[in-house]
């Protein structure tokens, strides 16, 4: 099983567009053993482009959050001192001790810290992982974070764990940005496609992404989406940094309207299909 992550740094450059199209064309030209995984758990939207997708399974994902047993607690404050996230409030003079689930990262440090067996864990839902069958390929898996939860990274980890092994390709559609959820998505990928746009914002966030990937030593190439817009700075940067361009997708207003209407995979133009075919040829050499 080969893992390809689609990431971008900047939001709105076309991660979802590229992921959904790649899923479609990999199925057509490379292998039908292809699985799409929407890791943008804060707002997963890949599903929107698969009108006939059928839900296969749905699972609630929990994080374990500790609760303090006030009978056993001696208010020694050790748990609160160990907690890196300020999630535990202990006020000895008034015999008050409480864990704030919205700040807890379930690291378990407080369980180790407590010498009086006053910490017990209980499950707290953070979101859902859902598998869908699509008309082509192996299907779509998606994580959906519960509103108010801050456990994106944990949910992505659980989502990835649940993706069954196959003999083909898994595509991870990453969240925007360069923070923990993105690192979690791309860290075990065999190859990373960075989608950018030739605008100052696109370039700025691309450089952040490139720095991050160099730091974690992951192989990557760039797809320039909306080519023809903006300026040449992105190309100059890629040349200077010796980064390979895997493909270019020209800006097309009609294509954008189709995306907005949710019809990304209907009547794809010959031009677009050619571009993705070339991209897949290049990816083949990378994995």
């Amino acid at each position: 099983m080969k893992k390809i992550a689609v990431a971008s740094g900047k939001g709105g450059t076309g991660k979802t567009t590229v992921s959904v199209n790649l899923y479609h064309f990999i199925n057509k030209y490379l292998t039908q053993e292809v699985q799409l995984v929407d890791c943008d758990v804060e707002e997963p939207n890949d599903l929107l482009f698969f009108g006939n997708a059928k839900e296969v399974s749905r699972e609630t994902i929990n994080q374990m959050v500790p609760r303090i047993d006030n009978e056993k607690c001696t208010y020694c404050r050790k748990c609160a001192e160990w907690c890196e996230f300020n999630a535990i409030v202990v006020i000895p003079p008034v015999q008050f001790a409480e864990v704030n689930p919205s700040l807890c990262h379930s690291c378990g440090a407080c369980l180790v810290a407590c010498e009086y067996d006053a910490m017990k864990e209980y499950p707290e839902p953070i979101g859902e992982v859902t598998f869908y069958k699509t008309e082509e390929g192996l299907g779509l898996a998606e994580g959906r974070l519960k509103i108010g939860s801050a456990m994106q990274t944990m949910l992505i980890k659980e989502l990835k764990k649940r993706v069954p092994d196959n003999d083909g390709i898994v595509l991870f559609d990453a969240p925007p940005g360069t923070s923990c959820p993105v690192v979690e998505t791309v860290s075990d990928a065999d190859y990373i496609l960075l989608v950018t746009e030739p605008t100052p914002f696109g370039l700025h966030d691309l450089t952040l992404m490139v720095e991050m990937l160099k730091e974690i030593k992951q192989p990557f190439g760039v797809i320039v989406n909306k080519a023809g817009l903006g300026n040449n700075d992105v190309y100059d940067y890629l040349k200077k940094e010796n980064i390979e361009i895997i493909g270019e997708i020209p800006f097309d207003k009609e294509y954008a309207s189709k995306y907005a209407a949710g019809n990304l995979l209907q009547d794809i133009s010959h031009e677009t299909e050619q571009r993705y075919k070339e991209i897949i040829e290049k990816i083949k050499t990378k994995i």
Partner: peptide, 17 residues
């Protein structure tokens, strides 16, 4: 602090009486 600054501060306020 990354988070929980408010609750930590309340902790201090209660301790100070």
């Amino acid at each position: 602090a990354q988070g929980g600054a408010g609750t930590k501060t309340v902790e201090k306020m209660v301790e100070l009486g």
